[in-house]
Design a protein around this nucleic acid. Structure first.
Lengths: 139, 139
DNA sequence: TCCTACGATGGACTTTGTCTAAGTCAAGTG
DNA sequence: CACTTGACTTAGACAAAGTCCATCGTAGGA
């Protein structure tokens, strides 16, 4: 049984076939699918599921804080079910592969007061870019 | 005379009215315009300039390394002519205002080898989020 | 001044995402 | 177990951001 599904159920989420399928597709580690990828995988299990439902469902999971949006490339948003361990992302510039990473140190603390321009800074998002082992081997 | 224009000229870039206008619109500090904003400002000076030209020109400036793409919100890419001083961005979550910031410390060094998954990591992009002084005052 | 390759144009097309009106169904009630 | 109701789903239209292409125009060298 999917962890994500378990958590959502525990919040009194109304359960439907569509929501179950979306949650199942999205479950796991290092999972970073676009809405479209989620939709096409969902369709494999539930052919009549609509795009709008996938978007709605993803949006709700994000509001509930069970999934986070990531935009590592400049195309579509990706959805990351690993919302309970704060982490950043490492992206392959060639193939787009994404890994979750946990840097040491706190980037928030690295922003001096005189570089804050009076902002109340609450959050930081870090994206590392490089080349993954298999792309490096292929080169 | 625009710094950016000066640099581009120095690289043997073929100069046209359209390219000049785009470079002029984009020049300055803390400038982070979307392609569409660049286009509409360019149109003020050169009414017949086309969208495709603005996109092409911005794309070339990016390839030449004279301008960097930033995607701070999840909508349109923004273009930052401040390409020669490495920096990160601080974004207001309410109004979208963007400032260039220079954190102390090196986030690249904060990524331990065992969190690199064999990647050759070459670059980091950091986006701070918060609330700017004027939005805080308005709240 | 003339040529020509590079740049510009605009309109069609694609991708990603949002909205709406109408139909469907999960789950609480009796 | 059937009923009811409001929340959920659907298809398709719409919108925003960006790309592509055939054709025309022009910067800059000969």
């Amino acid at each position: 049984m999917s962890d994500l599904l378990e958590r959502l159920r525990g919040r009194g989420w109304r359960m439907t076939a569509q929501r179950r399928v979306v949650a199942e597709v999205l479950d796991g580690e290092h999972v970073h699918l676009t809405a479209d990828e989620v939709h096409s995988r969902a369709v494999d299990r539930l052919p009549e599921i609509s795009r709008a439902t996938v978007y709605n469902t993803l949006g709700e999971m994000v509001s509930l804080g069970e999934v986070v949006e990531v935009s590592t490339d400049r195309r579509a948003k990706r959805y990351d079910p690993n919302a309970h361990r704060p982490h950043h992302h490492l992206v392959c510039a060639r193939c787009g592969a994404i890994r979750d990473v946990h840097p040491s140190g706190d980037p928030l603390a690295d922003l001096p007061a005189d570089e804050r321009f009076g902002f109340t800074v609450s959050d930081v998002e870090v994206t590392y870019r490089g080349v993954c082992p298999s792309c490096a081997a292929a080169a």
